[in-house]
Structure formats: structure tokens, C-alpha cells
Simulated assay, not measured.
Amino acid sequence: MSEVVIIDAVRTAIGKKEGALTNIHPVDLLVPILRQLVDRNNVSERDIEDIVTGCATMTNEQGGNVGRLATLAAGFPVEVPAYSINRLCGSSQQAIHNACQAILANDATIVIACGVESMSRVPMGSDIGSFSDTLMNKHTIVPQGFSAELIASEWNLTRYELDEYAYHSHQRAIEAIDKGYFEREIIPIDIEEDRQFVTDEGVRRETTLEKLHQLNASFQPESGVVTAGNSSQISDGAAGILLMSHKKARQLSIKPRARVIARAVVGADPLMNLTGVIPATKKVLQKAGLTLEQMDVIEINEAFASVVKAWEKEFKPDMDKVNPRGGAIALGHPLGASGARIATTLLHTLEDTEGRFGLQVMCIGFGMATATIIERL
């Protein structure tokens, strides 16, 4: 059986809603990711056997198979195929899984997995109409924020705990930016004739616990604990991973940076919605034959602070290993791009800290979650 290795991983800096990346078409946002992955690794475009693109809101400018359109716009030969997938917040993590599966099945030896989302230009949920009566008769479907409140109640999480977690996410992101930890993973994006975008835009240097405490609850005004401050940000961005079979990497004399050793996806209660990170973590660790204690870096998507804190209560991990460079609360959550963005940050953090194993896990709307374990080589 083939072994899947990671050759490279890059991302854009993340733009905030109606921020620096607003004027860039989603296709054009993904183009420099695709170009960098081939150009700086001396890989022929013609050797790319497929491109898998995650995108959560595939309508309007992100419709029509956005991955294929970006592949053409990037100047790849027309013979290079591409397809786009939607597993909501887990879309580009699923793109990584799909790319791995193609390589493991010997359907391909070199695949790019990537993701893009311009939430400024294509609003979240704009691809959703009314829900069917059949669905609503079987399940209670609520906005994710209400699910985040249910999670906070179920795990007895206080407003202080959530705000404290959000504050630390910003502080970790600020430290990572100031110490240059993101510089290797971020590629510059030209946004004006003489200006490049290279720094995550959503990080709030001025935030304090006091300011976070002053925000009103977003979903339950009277008694709620979930606010805009302890939730992920609406964002724009793109990211991508170059994957190969280990055999192909040896043939091309390319040194792999990591290998993918386990993948998992689970379904969960659509009312609680975001709790799938708990069974997904258990499942992927079991598949890998590893324990949480063996993970040197853990990235769990900060869709809401309550999701991470509930997960923490279940597993009681060393939280210094969890989102050590901040997460979506500070950096932003460009839906379909977040899986590849988190994978990129996970890889670089493992390298910088000389860690061995890394875990990535993400909650997904309507009750799902994805999880991946990689090993640095």
C-alpha cells in the first residue's frame, strides 16, 4: 500500500470581513496557492493528477466548481483535472482526506488538496434555501450559535471560561505574529499596486478580558454566554497542501515533511451540532494506535470557545499543546479554507518545535467532525 506524505503546505494571511481581501475574487485568491505549491517545489504542473478544493458556500463566485476554475486561472494545463467538495467547515480537511484516499488507492501519485472561502463576497448560508418538512420532522435544526449555547450548558461552562479562552487565543496569535512564527507558511497576496497582504487581519491587539466581558450574548440575550468575542470570525482566505505517495517523492528526490497516518470522519447529534470533535478525536487516535498524550501539537478549530472547552473537559489535555499559535477566534475562520489552513499551521508548528505527532480536529455544521493525525518526518 502507498504511504501518503506532505511535501508542502501554504496559506494566505486571513482577511477579516470586508477587509484586505474583499476585492479579490475567490478564484484569484486560490490561484497563488496553486502556483506556489508547484513552483517552489519544482514539480511539473502536468504531473499533478488531481486538485481537490474545499469550499463551504459553493454558489455565485464560488460556484461552478471553483477548484477547476482556479486551476485554469492558475495556468495549469487543461489536462489537469479538479473538483470541489463541501463538508461545510471541514471541507478542505476533507479535501486532504480525499487526496490521501486517491493516493492510497493508487489512483494518483501527486494531488493538491486546498480550500478557499471569501465570506465577504459570498455570504455564509447564501447557498441554503428552506429546509424540507421531512428533515424538520425528524431533527431539530438550529443555528450553530444556539448549539454552542447548548454545549456551554451541557458542560457547565461559564461566560468567564469562554472569554478567558478567547483572550488567550488572541494573545497566542499576537505572540506568533510578533515572533514571525507564521512567516514560513504565509504567501504574500498583492492587494494593491504597491501593497502585499501578509499578516492575519482579525487579531485584536487591544482586546482585554474586561472588553470581552462587556459584549452582549449573541444568541440568548438574557442568559447566554456565547458572544461575538468568544466565537470564530467571518473571514476570507485560502490554503493548500501538496501530497504525494512516498514512492513518488523518492523518485523525484523530494524530501517529504510529514506523513498522514490516520483520518476519521464522524456524524453527531445535529441539535448539539458541534460535539463531533469528541468522538472524532477518539476514533482517529484509535485508528492511529496512539494516545492524546503522544500528540505534540493539537489543533482544534475554534468555531466557538464552548466547543474547545467541552472537548477539554472530556480529554483533560495539556492545553499548552492546543492551538499554541491561536485559533479561529483570533485568526479567523474562512470556512472552506480552514481545514487546509489549520493543517498548514499544524505542520509548521511541529517543525518549529521538533514535535513528532500532530492532531487536527474540526467540528462541522449539522452534526459532523473530521480528524487527522500527521507525523513529522
Rank of each mutant, 00 (worst) to 15 (best):
P270V: 00
L271E: 11
M272Y: 06
L274K: 05
T275K: 09
T275I: 15
G276Q: 06
G276K: 08
V277T: 14
P279D: 03
P279Y: 04
P279K: 02
A280Y: 02
A280R: 02
A280H: 01
K282E: 14
K282W: 04
K282R: 15
K283S: 15
K283G: 05
K283R: 14
V284A: 08
V284L: 04
L285V: 04
Q286A: 15
Q286Y: 04
Q286D: 14
K287H: 10
K287R: 15
K287V: 07
G289E: 04
G289C: 03
G289K: 07
G289N: 12
L290A: 10
L290Y: 12
L290C: 08
T291W: 07
L292C: 13
E293T: 15
Q294W: 03
M295L: 03
M295A: 06
M295W: 05
M295S: 06
D296K: 09
D296A: 05
V297R: 12
V297A: 05
I298H: 01
E299N: 13
E299R: 03
I300R: 02
I300G: 06
N301K: 11
N301A: 08
N301G: 06
N301T: 13
N301Q: 14
E302M: 09
E302N: 01
E302D: 13
A303L: 06
A303M: 03
A303E: 00
A303N: 07
F304Y: 10
A305Y: 02
S306Y: 03
S306R: 01
S306E: 01
V307Y: 06
V307K: 03
V307I: 12
V308D: 07
V308T: 13
V308L: 09
K309G: 00
K309T: 02
W311F: 09
W311I: 08
W311D: 04
E312Y: 05
E312W: 02
E312N: 03
E314L: 01
E314Q: 12
E314R: 09
E314V: 15
F315V: 03
F315P: 04
K316G: 07
K316C: 05
P317S: 11
D318T: 04
D318L: 08
M319D: 00
M319I: 15
M319A: 01
D320R: 15
D320F: 00
D320K: 15
V322Q: 01
N323C: 00
N323D: 00
P324L: 03
R325A: 02
R325C: 06
G326F: 06
G326D: 05
G327M: 08
G327I: 07
G327C: 13
G327W: 14
A328F: 09
A328M: 12
I329D: 07
I329C: 12
I329W: 07
I329T: 11
A330L: 10
A330K: 08
L331M: 04
L331Y: 10
G332Q: 12
G332W: 13
G332D: 11
G332C: 09
H333F: 07
H333C: 10
P334S: 10
P334C: 14
L335R: 11
L335D: 13
L335N: 13
G336C: 05
G336Q: 07
A337H: 05
S338Q: 07
S338N: 09
S338C: 09
S338R: 11
G339S: 06
A340W: 03
A340T: 15
A340Q: 01
